Amino acid sequence: MINMVALMGRLTYEPELRKTPSDVSVLRFQVACDRSYQRAGAERQADFIDCVAWRQTAEFISRYFHKGSMIAVEGTIQTSNYTDKNGNNRKQIEVLANNVSFCGSKSESGNAAPTGGYNEPAPSYASADNSDFEEIVDDDDDLPF
């Protein structure tokens, strides 16, 4: 059986870190994801997906993400049934965030990303000084076959 979710969107409200009575960090947040299609002449639609993160993932989101931040979430769907305060049976569906990542540029996130983080450009190996590298010569003349 497979239960995998991958989302990319923007946080709809400022995330607020909470603690359980046993001092475990938990954070509930919502991601707005634009739909990939729209009817001609209609406004683009979005889905608002409830998510929850625990422990270090919750603390990471609280520290580096804010309302409007672009976020990528990997996780699983979890459902739960409960009775509300009026005695009505309810079903809750949310994404349990196992892994989150930055998306977009540093300027979009308001420099919220830690230095040396995901937004750091990859090192360039195309410099003029390649003294650490030996040139590979494609010479097939010595092969016995």
Score class of each variant (00 low, 15 high):
Gln30Ser: 13
Gln30Glu: 14
Gln30Asp: 10
Gln30Thr: 15
Val31Leu: 01
Val31Asn: 00
Val31Asp: 00
Ala32Gln: 04
Ala32Leu: 05
Ala32Glu: 08
Ala32Asp: 04
Cys33Tyr: 02
Cys33Pro: 00
Cys33His: 01
Asp34Glu: 14
Asp34Asn: 15
Arg35Thr: 05
Ser36Asn: 14
Arg39Gly: 10
Arg39Ile: 01
Ala40Met: 11
Ala40Ile: 13
Ala40Tyr: 10
Ala40Asp: 13
Gly41Gln: 11
Gly41Met: 06
Gly41Val: 04
Gly41Lys: 11
Gln45Tyr: 04
Gln45Ile: 05
Gln45Glu: 15
Ala46Asn: 06
Ala46Gly: 06
Ala46Trp: 01
Ala46Glu: 04
Ala46Cys: 07
Ala46Tyr: 01
Ala46Gln: 14
Asp47Met: 03
Asp47Thr: 01
Asp47Lys: 03
Asp47Leu: 05
Asp47Asn: 05
Asp47Trp: 06
Phe48Tyr: 15
Ile49Ala: 06
Ile49Arg: 05
Ile49Asp: 03
Asp50Phe: 05
Cys51Met: 09
Val52Ser: 11
Val52Gly: 07
Ala53Lys: 08
Ala53Val: 07
Arg55His: 11
Arg55Thr: 09
Arg55Tyr: 07
Gln56Met: 02
Gln56Tyr: 02
Gln56Glu: 12
Gln56Asn: 11
Thr57Trp: 10
Thr57Gln: 15
Ala58Asp: 03
Ala58Pro: 06
Ala58Ser: 05
Ala58Glu: 03
Glu59Ser: 05
Glu59Cys: 03
Glu59Asn: 02
Phe60Arg: 08
Phe60Val: 08
Phe60Lys: 06
Ile61Leu: 03
Ile61Asp: 00
Ile61Met: 04
Ile61Gly: 01
Ser62Arg: 01
Ser62Gly: 14
Ser62His: 14
Ser62Lys: 02
Arg63Asp: 08
Arg63Trp: 04
Tyr64Ser: 03
Tyr64Met: 02
Tyr64Val: 01
Phe65Lys: 05
Phe65His: 03
His66Ser: 15
His66Cys: 10
His66Asp: 14
Lys67Phe: 08
Lys67Leu: 08
Lys67Ser: 08
Gly68Glu: 06
Gly68Asn: 09
Gly68Trp: 01
Gly68Ile: 02
Gly68Tyr: 02
Ser69Phe: 09
Ser69Val: 02
Met70Arg: 15
Met70Leu: 14
Ile71Trp: 11
Ile71Cys: 07
Ile71Ala: 09
Ala72Thr: 11
Ala72Lys: 13
Ala72Ile: 10
Val73Cys: 01
Val73Met: 02
Glu74Pro: 00
Glu74Trp: 13
Glu74Asp: 15
Glu74Cys: 10
Gly75Asp: 07
Gly75Arg: 07
Gly75Tyr: 08
Gly75Phe: 06
Ile77Thr: 12
Ile77Pro: 08
Ile77Arg: 08
Gln78Asp: 13
Gln78Trp: 00
Gln78Glu: 15
Thr79Arg: 13
Thr79Asp: 11
Ser80Arg: 15
Ser80Tyr: 07
Ser80Val: 00
Ser80Cys: 03
Ser80Asn: 12
Ser80Pro: 00
Ser80His: 07
Asn81Val: 13
Tyr82Trp: 15
Tyr82Phe: 15
Thr83His: 06
Thr83Glu: 14
Thr83Asn: 05
Thr83Trp: 02
